[in-house]
Design a protein around this nucleic acid. Structure first.
Lengths: 117, 117
DNA sequence: TTTTTAAGATGATTTATATCATATATTGAA
DNA sequence: TTCAATATATGATATAAATCATCTTAAAAA
């Protein structure tokens, strides 16, 4: 349930619910209403990645945009920071794109990562 | 002058001036008032790094904080994303900490990077 | 010395984001 | 079939960030 998630991570329940709605709509999270209802992830959901979530909640630009917020900055016309950060940035992007929620959950199950849930 | 910088980067002049004030106060940027006045960077300023700027404008936490915004996440208690991103993140941090403004300006002078100024 | 041009300081306004409130829809259980 | 529990939807409020407006201070030049 939203409450079970919101409390341990210190996010207001109603706000979390609002954030979850577009994820449900985009089939990244599943939900059932009524008593014994709540949010869950089925086999298909678990194959989604962190990037999928970011693209729904924020937007694609959040990641591709210039760190100096220059709209003219791109690969051909890189700003000074672009060159310095492009490698690490692509690395992060790849990681978030490849790692499925299932894999992340597995890390928690193994005790290699922790969540306050 | 603030106007000369603000226009090509599409940031309102008054807002840019407001952002520059703490940088002047922290001796990252220099300024002179009156006619023929404006903002500039002296030899000492040019040795400052991007991290110095970020720490003044935003704050140190902007960089060290957990990507999932979990206050309990740290090196001993890492969230699932922490492990995945820590390497690239440290890499970015190091780059921004080591590169001086002088070096960045040099890249622009060499034509390896571009600014709309 | 006066005027003009710039930064500095401060507060108000706008806009975006986060949060709250309330009503509706769905579903399990009594 | 009714009730209770939970998500869904929508709009209102609060807070933070960005932007605007106005005045003050400093310095160069006439």
């Amino acid at each position: 349930m939203a409450k079970d998630i919101s409390e341990p991570i210190n996010v207001p329940q109603a706000y979390l619910a609002k954030l979850l709605q577009p994820l449900v709509k985009e089939n990244i999270v599943s939900s059932v209403r009524g008593p014994k209802g709540g949010f869950y992830m089925d086999d298909e959901n678990l194959e989604k990645t962190v990037i999928d979530i970011i693209f729904v909640i924020d937007s694609e630009e959040k990641f591709s945009s210039c760190m100096l917020s220059l709209d003219k900055c791109n690969e051909e016309n890189p700003c000074p920071l672009h060159n310095i950060l492009v490698a690490s940035r692509n690395d992060i992007f790849q990681q978030l794109k490849e790692k499925t929620i299932r894999e992340l959950a597995h890390e928690v199950a193994l005790g290699n990562a922790f969540l306050p849930l």
